[in-house]
Design a protein around this nucleic acid. Structure first.
Lengths: 212, 212
DNA sequence: TAGATTGTTAATCGATTAACAATC
DNA sequence: TAGATTGTTAATCGATTAACAATC
């Protein structure tokens, strides 16, 4: 893959997985080529935006023809890093943590889950998706051996600051953060993706109330 | 609360729950007044943005003093609709659906969960958070009685189109959508909040690979 | 070839930041 | 009162859309 610009805006990056999903569906439906105009219609975007977005990463289309679905899908597969999985660990194996692991395929998203940590006696020793839950005391030891690149944080806000500091010491720099602890404020260089489910739900509450 | 503009941009709306959380923390810590400058420092925003955002909804500050934490928190409590809960139903009581219900407080986010639906024999009849799981065949009957305002979709993509159409027929217009079915494309007037956990994770895969 | 569609530059639109008079 | 900080207008920045020459 050819990358043209060094700095791609988050607005563009956030659209990539959706392109990837739509192209997968097109492939499944036997569509082999598609124009930016047709893809735009199907995705509810403008053709301009699609061409601008894709051209951040290379020239995938052909004048007069459009884009090869297979080729574009494959390009995104590499761009999104699905072809080179990073290792991830889960911190906190409560309801949410377990649901995440059971619910989705990490492999298809560029990650491999290699460890699960929790301090609850009820959970330590149990298996989640073939991985045995370990006590958090073993975190440093585990990281020395496995060097995980991502930490998935499904822990309470209070536990987070101490744990994130330990993870940083272990060389973990990327966080999929479901807690309300604001990692980016304390570690500006960390790669952080916050998932604030409560905030997301509240925007619906706002809009429901505002609409009436 | 005084609303100045009719149309508030989603950029602003998405910041409101975070303001609400930070103000809650300030309250807990006994802080009674705060300037836009100080709040900006704590949240990693600019003071300008905070004042612009808040002024979409009214004039909550006082020149020379700043904002009363209590008063501003209370304003957001009303603006976000926490004071007037809407009723919600959960469709799909699998791993993710159950985790959501057990993990978070709907009441604190402006909703009350009134029904849970699933078609799995193993789940129908079981209780989730004091609510008995019903088969989806009872959806229409239930909606006639309870008129839920929000549907939480924790169902596979394939099941979604039929179910969303039925929900619309039942008068449900707001969706907290964890499925990959694109509701907004088919129903442009619906209130939709998508939570695409896989997409969110993939942005981290992209950034991890790009960073090296 | 002619029609279609790209890649890319220019124009527009919207969101963020800066500046400052008003005022507590 | 003087200092601080707001609400708001103006300036800037970034993202989206439109336009079009290049070309398959």
């Amino acid at each position: 893959m050819t990358v043209k610009a060094d700095m791609i805006s988050m607005s563009v990056i956030r659209r990539l997985p959706r392109y990837y999903r739509f192209l997968y569906d097109l492939k499944q439906n036997g569509v082999t080529r598609i124009s930016s105009h047709e893809l735009a219609k199907r995705m509810g975007l403008t053709a301009s935006q699609i061409r601008q977005d894709l051209n951040c990463f290379g020239e995938f289309g052909q004048q007069g023809y459009g884009y090869s679905v297979d080729q574009l899908y494959d390009a995104l597969y590499h761009i999104l890093g699905v072809s080179t999985p990073s290792s991830a660990i889960l911190l906190g194996a409560g309801n949410l943590g377990r649901a995440l692991v059971n619910h989705m395929s990490f492999e298809n998203k560029g990650f491999k889950l290699v460890g699960v940590f929790d301090d609850s006696d009820a959970l330590v020793g149990s298996k989640i998706h073939d991985i045995t839950v370990q006590p958090t005391t073993l975190l440093e030891e585990f990281c020395k051996t496995h060097s995980p690149q991502l930490a998935i944080l499904c822990i309470p806000k209070e536990t987070a600051p101490g744990l994130v500091e330990r993870l940083r010491q272990c060389g973990v720099n990327a966080f999929w953060n479901f807690s309300h602890y604001d990692i980016a404020l304390r570690y500006p260089d960390a790669l952080v993706e916050n998932v604030h489910l409560g905030d997301s739900l509240m925007t619906l509450s706002y809009r429901l109330n505002r609409n009436e």
